[in-house]
Amino acid sequence: MQGLRLAEEYNRDFHPSSNNWFYFQEHHVLLALHAEQYERAQQLMGVITKNPAYLIQREAALQRWDLYKGYIDFVMPPQRVTTARQRQIAQWVLQLPEYSRDKRGHNVAILVLQLLHFLRERNLEEVLLRLERLRKYQQRHLYEPTTLRSRLFLRLLQVIVDKNFDAAQAAERGKVLLQQLQETPPPGEAFAEVEIIPYEHLWELVLSLLREGAPVAKESELAS
């Protein structure tokens, strides 16, 4: 919370049309998300996207903003997001490019957001597909010491499959991994590229989604 207060104080030091303003606001949004101040993050995104200079930002920057908006809209209470926006989010999630070289730091965040979306949709096939893609991505790219938090979180996600998407059993089995995650500090500023929302908070969100109902196979899958 102290970081958010400081961000509010220093906000006036940057001209709204400057690249430094957008760079500062990116950190401001991430501070709000990490403090679970989701409404504040949404308010900040409203200010940012209305800035006349927003659309002339580099493509990579615009894609990052899109990803932040995707997470914010997902964690906001459903009644605070319009039905039209929910449909837009669903379509956007499906169109997110994965394994892009331009978004190497965000690939995990993209796949996790897709996974969350399909958990909410209770779509078993798509949930398992994203978990498999995360597993392969981990094998290929997440081997450095700085990726330990990501590896621990992906192991937690595997627990939900091992426990047949039972929230209570997954929470119990995941206690040791969660403790290890809580004891593992972020590797530095770059971690925000992956952990747009801290993994501890995402794990609670995963369990909450499972309590609402486990993903199920489509009728076509059952018939086959």
Rank of each mutant, 00 (worst) to 15 (best):
M1Y: 00
G3K: 05
L4F: 01
L4W: 09
R5A: 12
L6C: 13
A7Q: 11
A7P: 03
N11A: 14
N11K: 15
R12V: 15
D13Q: 15
F14R: 09
F14V: 14
N19Q: 15
W21M: 13
F24K: 09
H28W: 14
V29R: 05
L30V: 04
L31H: 04
A32R: 01
R40K: 07
R40P: 02
A41E: 02
Q42T: 02
Q43V: 06
L44W: 02
M45N: 09
V47S: 11
V47K: 15
K50C: 11
K50L: 14
N51M: 15
L55E: 14
L55M: 14
Q57H: 13
R58Y: 13
E59D: 13
A60L: 12
A60Y: 05
Q63Y: 10
W65N: 06
D66G: 11
G70I: 00
Y71M: 06
I72E: 04
D73N: 03
V75P: 04
V75K: 09
P78T: 02
R80G: 01
V81K: 05
V81I: 12
T82P: 04
T82R: 11
T82Y: 06
T83S: 08
A84W: 11
A84H: 09
A84F: 06
R85A: 12
R87N: 05
A90I: 04
A90L: 05
W92S: 12
V93T: 07
V93L: 12
V93G: 04
L94H: 10
L94S: 14
Q95D: 10
L96V: 10
P97Y: 06
E98P: 07
Y99C: 07
R101Q: 13
R104L: 10
A109E: 02
L113Q: 01
L113H: 01
Q114F: 07
Q114Y: 01
L115E: 04
L116E: 01
F118M: 07
R122M: 05
L124H: 12
E125T: 10
E126N: 11
L128N: 13
L128P: 08
L129F: 13
L131N: 06
E132M: 04
R133G: 07
Y137P: 00
Y137C: 00
L142T: 07
L142S: 12
L142H: 08
Y143D: 08
Y143V: 08
Y143F: 07
T147I: 00
L148M: 10
R151M: 13
R151H: 08
L152W: 10
R155Y: 11
L157G: 14
L157S: 12
V159M: 11
I160L: 14
V161K: 15
V161N: 12
D162R: 15
K163H: 14
N164E: 15
F165K: 02
A167G: 08
A167I: 15
A171Y: 08
A171W: 09
E172P: 00
V176S: 14
L177R: 09
L178T: 08
Q180E: 13
Q180G: 07
L181K: 07
L181A: 05
T184G: 06
P187S: 10
P187T: 02
G188P: 03
E193F: 00
V194F: 02
E195C: 00
E195K: 00
I197H: 00
P198I: 01
L202T: 04
W203T: 03
W203N: 03
E204H: 02
L205R: 09
L205P: 01
L207R: 03
S208V: 01
E212M: 08
G213L: 06
G213H: 05
P215S: 12
P215R: 09
P215Q: 11
V216T: 07
K218I: 03
K218D: 12
